[in-house]
């Protein structure tokens, strides 16, 4: 037997490893969870990035296509569209050129996309055409009644 004077110390020693066991397991579990989370988070972020990037690109491409067709129509027949519509088509063209496709963290992306959507709506209404980008986020999908 160890010449320990205080029996209380002996008791502490006896349980020491089991107390540490809890701590050790906690740390181990944390590290495992952290690594897992990091990997899963990266993958999820990658998926979100791909999805949002794809959607944004698709919407920009949709507007680009419309603008190209309208611009061609205006070149063929400059009298066909009103000056306001012609100006709006030009504005959309400039907005599309200004959109920082390779700089998603640029704060202007939201504003430019917002302006593009409004101009697009205005042109469609003036031309009396029902064009709709199918991925366009609807502001009200719910069907609740309100007045």
């Amino acid at each position: 037997m160890d010449p320990r004077p205080d029996p209380a110390d002996a008791v502490a020693d006896l349980f020491d490893s089991s107390l540490n066991l809890e701590d050790a397991h906690f740390k181990e579990g944390y590290a495992e969870g952290y690594d897992y989370g990091l990997e899963a988070g990266r993958e999820e972020a990658r998926q979100v990035g791909l999805k949002v990037g794809f959607e944004t690109g698709e919407e920009l491409g949709f507007y680009r296509g419309c603008v190209d067709v309208w611009s061609s129509a205006i070149r063929v027949d400059p009298e066909r569209f009103s000056s306001r519509v012609q100006k709006s088509v030009k504005t959309m063209e400039l907005l599309l050129e200004r959109y920082p496709v390779l700089d998603p963290e640029n704060e202007s992306v939201q504003e430019i996309m917002g302006d593009l959507r409004l101009k697009f709506k205005a042109i469609c209404a003036s031309l009396g055409v029902k064009l709709e980008y199918k991925g366009y986020p609807k502001s009200a999908d719910d069907k609740n009644m309100e007045f």
Partner: peptide, 8 residues
């Protein structure tokens, strides 16, 4: 009627 502006 021509749409002059859409305001958000």
């Amino acid at each position: 009627f021509e749409c002059a502006s859409v305001l958000q």
